[in-house]
Each structure stands twice: as C-alpha cells, then as structure tokens.
Nucleic acid binder design. Sequence first.
DNA 1: ACCTGAACACCGTTCAAGT
DNA 2: ACCTGAACACCGTTCAAGT
Lengths: 216, 216
Amino acid sequence: VAAPAKTSAKQGRTRRARGSINPADIIAGAFDYCRTTPVEELSMPQLAAHLKVGVTSIYWYFKSKRELIDAMTDEALVSFYESMPPLQGANWEEKLRNFFASFYELLGADELKCDLIVRRIGAHSEEGAIRAWPRAEELLETLIAAGFSAPMARHAFVTLSAYTQGILLVERTGQSSVVMRESASPASEEFAFGITNIISGLALLLPRKGRKGAVA
Amino acid sequence: VAAPAKTSAKQGRTRRARGSINPADIIAGAFDYCRTTPVEELSMPQLAAHLKVGVTSIYWYFKSKRELIDAMTDEALVSFYESMPPLQGANWEEKLRNFFASFYELLGADELKCDLIVRRIGAHSEEGAIRAWPRAEELLETLIAAGFSAPMARHAFVTLSAYTQGILLVERTGQSSVVMRESASPASEEFAFGITNIISGLALLLPRKGRKGAVA
DNA sequence: ACCTGAACACCGTTCAAGT
DNA sequence: ACCTGAACACCGTTCAAGT
C-alpha cells in the first residue's frame, strides 16, 4: 500500500522547553489572535499555531475551548474593572452619568471585550469573576447616601447597567435601524439621551429636594 | 487492500420525491430541532437527519448554515411581531408600558427567539426584516400625538427597547447577580422598575401637564 | 511534569452523480 | 429540477508516547 514516505517536514517547529508556556501566555496569545479573528471563530489548532505550540499543549492548561474562553472572559472583566476610572462628579447624578459613560465607552471601543462581557460568547458560570466590583459598590453607597434605599439603589444600578448593555448590543449587532431609517443621531448622543432620562426618573424617587437643579 | 465490503446499509432511508422538501419545511424543522439543542450547537448533518433528508438537500435551498439561521431569525421576527398584541392603554404611558411588557414576556418565554432576535446568533444583515414593524410605528405616533417631537419619540423608543433587550440579555446569561448577591426581587419586578422609571423620566420632557396624575 | 503528533469522531461545504 | 452519498478540509478533543 506504499507507506506515505514520511514527508512530515511540515514546518519543523522545534520542541519547546518544559516551562515555556503557561496559562497567562495562552490567554494573552488568544487575545492577540482575536485582534484578527472574532472569538466565535477562534480555533484551537489556529491558536496553537499562533502561539507556536502543539495544540495538545493548550489542553494541558485548559480542559476545553469553553474553559479557555471563560478564562478570557474573566481576564476581560478584570481589565475592564481596572480601566474604569474612579467615581467622579459633584453629585450622585453626575457620578452615575460618568460611571456609565465610561462603561459605554470602554466596551464600545473594544469589540472583543464587548463580545466576551456583554454578549457572553462563552456564556458560563453563574458567577465566576462577576461580583466583587468595588467601583459598583462605591456607586451604590453614593446612592444610599443621597437618600435611596438599598433595594432602590440596586434597582437603579441594574436599570442603568441593562440599558447600557442593551445599547452596546444593539449597536454591536447593527439593529439600530429599527425605527431610525433616516436622520438618527450619532450613537453616543443616543446613549446619552437614555442615561439622562433614567437619571431624571430616579431623581423623582428621592423623598425631597433634587426636583429642581442640584447644580450648586 | 480488501474493498470495504460495501456495508452501506446504515439506515436505508428511501430517496425522497422531487417536491418533498422546501425552505419552509426546513426552517420549521430547524425550529423543531432547536427545541432540543441550542441554536449555537445546530449542526447541518443532524438537522438533515431530523428532517430525514440528505445534508446536501438543505444546501439546495440555503447557501450556507449562516443563511439558514438568518432565515430562522427573519421567521422569528415575523412571528414575534405577529404575537405582539395591539396597543392598549388609556394614555401614552400605559401604552408604552404594555408594549414593552409584551416585548419582555414574549421573548423572555422563548429562549430560541431571544437568542435569534436579541443575542443575534447569526448576527447578520444591516436590515433584513427588521424595519416595517407597524406596531412600533403606531407607538411612535401615539407619542407624537402626546406632544413629543418625532426625534424625541424615536429616542424614547430606542431607550426602552435597548433597556428591555439589555434586561433579557442579562437574565439570559445569568449575570443578574452582579450587585444582587442576597435578596433581589423577581425578574419581572426588576424589569418593571426600569420601565416605570424610564417612562416617568419621559413624562418630564413633555411641555406642560402630565406632571401629576394623568389617570382620568 | 510538561510538550507533542497522530488519530477519532465530528463539522460545514462541495462535487459529481443519480432520477 | 431536485435529491443524494462520498469526499475534502477543517474542527475539538484524546491517546499514547516522547523528554
């Protein structure tokens, strides 16, 4: 049957040393690889080639592709949290507005992070690295200090967060043309409208003051 | 080399007649198949088996898996639009609330439709079957009749739509535990809070009246 | 302990027929 | 015109080594 002559050759990548790869390198390489290819198209063999390792080596550190993408999501979350600037603003309204403006800008500018965090490509664990977001905690405290009850403050956060993610999703999937055939304002203006609107709705829930201008 | 004895047999599905499948059947079969398997895991060979056709037959009607899923999305949109009840409510606030409550309930109750329409699994065309949603048009007219400018009415729609989709997304991917470790209200209550809040924010934009109760 | 190619069962898609 | 199995290049994952 004529043995296939062993024309292996291929590329002759040399065998790598024992400690030459680790999870962090793989994840970093995966992020780098995804600057070219959308996550949903990431392939283990191609990632291995990009990293210059055998495919099987990746499986030494990650049980499955799913687990690798989960790890990427965790990494994306950490980097997202870290890049969120400290709370700024003269009052709770401004702090809220600035917080979600940063949220929107950060994820809007990074398709990969947006896919991982908002669209949840790997759609995994109930929790993982989600909670423990000190900045959000701080924001809730601000709201409570302003007079909101704790459950109210949580509702406010969830509303704004869902809205922001919804806008990111709608832009990301290009369905923004639902009711906007002609004119239509630029994305960030559209986003700002909703945030302003939600915040002014929240102000109405406060026991007293805040009705007029809390400007100074 | 001992020819493989032609143990074809397999299942002996009989060849189907000429007109025995059509796009509608395939899409219907795909929806049926997805009652068992998430869309993201749909496989052409498995769908073909489910439909009792050769895989290649599907390719006669759909150029690719992507095109098939796009067609499913169109179908999901049409069925979604059709299942939206007519506008109801004594005033624009109630109409808005009821519209988005139906939006939320309809997609929240159907994982597949939610994946196709909100998460956009096939993430395709700029438009497709998106526009031409008479019910939304009607809603915009209601808002305009209530005193909103046309761009304002559009903004309101986009805000509420993004929020609703964001909530669906957040629930669907189970990240609702962001800031909600303990207590946390049921999903629909959470949703209602945001809608109420957005609507009361919108009321503030109206030139006069609507400040107090527009109840009767 | 860590890195590896070959192999397995599958996938999306195309080809070259069959009717 | 429509339906089909076999075949192709790929994928995710595992096995059985190599060092």
